[in-house]
Amino acid sequence: MLISGISTSSGQFALLLGENNQVVYDSSELEKDNNKELYYLLQNALTACNKKINDINHIIVDTGPGGTSRVRTGIAFANSLAYSLNIPVSPVSTMELAGIDAYSRYGFPVVNSVKSIKGNAYIGLYRGKNEDVKIKYGRLEEIVPQLVADIDRFVVVGAHRELIMKLPALAGKTVIDSCMQYGNARIFIEKSKLFTGRGLLFPQFVTPVTEQTI
């Protein structure tokens, strides 16, 4: 099964192709100008792998939160590609992506944060072992202590790592800096079995994570 993974929420686009949990193409490593349009990246990927568009069986897409226009760019493309090929598209939030990635490296629960407007942030907690990610929106200093109230040790990922580590309300807890700003989209392919079961076929489609949807 050929899977295409698309992540656009972070600093740069990542368009991947993979089979059997192995990444066979990653635009973030192979493209000279990875901020090109997604159709351009996908065409290049298919050519490089000697594949055709109809070879793609499943799409996995990053639903944010993150750069709002960038997230929608990926979702609009993924939804319409899935619709036109009549294949499923699976949504994965950046919180889950970063959580799975950091958990696989550290083995502790993961707190991820993404900047928003007016001093607010999206904060996600991934406890590990394929549990659902809990996502909250609001003030970092209020939400993080609530989320980790029953956790003694956790890893931080994202935009506010230093800020979280210095929160007085977390005194006594062990907070590990992952030095990661984002999760790596290779997870979409390498852990694809976690995501393909939630594939959506039109009339269902993927929508972005926003403060209105969590």
């Binding site: 159709y39 709002t68 760019t73 609009a76 493309f77």
Partner: peptide
């Protein structure tokens, strides 16, 4: 509006690739 345009443009290119039609 840039955010609005990007949705249409990316939806169109996704459809064009899948259906093998020029966009």
């Amino acid at each position: 509006l840039i955010g609005s345009l990007l949705v249409g443009l990316n939806a169109a290119t996704g459809l064009g690739l899948g259906w093998n039609k020029p966009v």
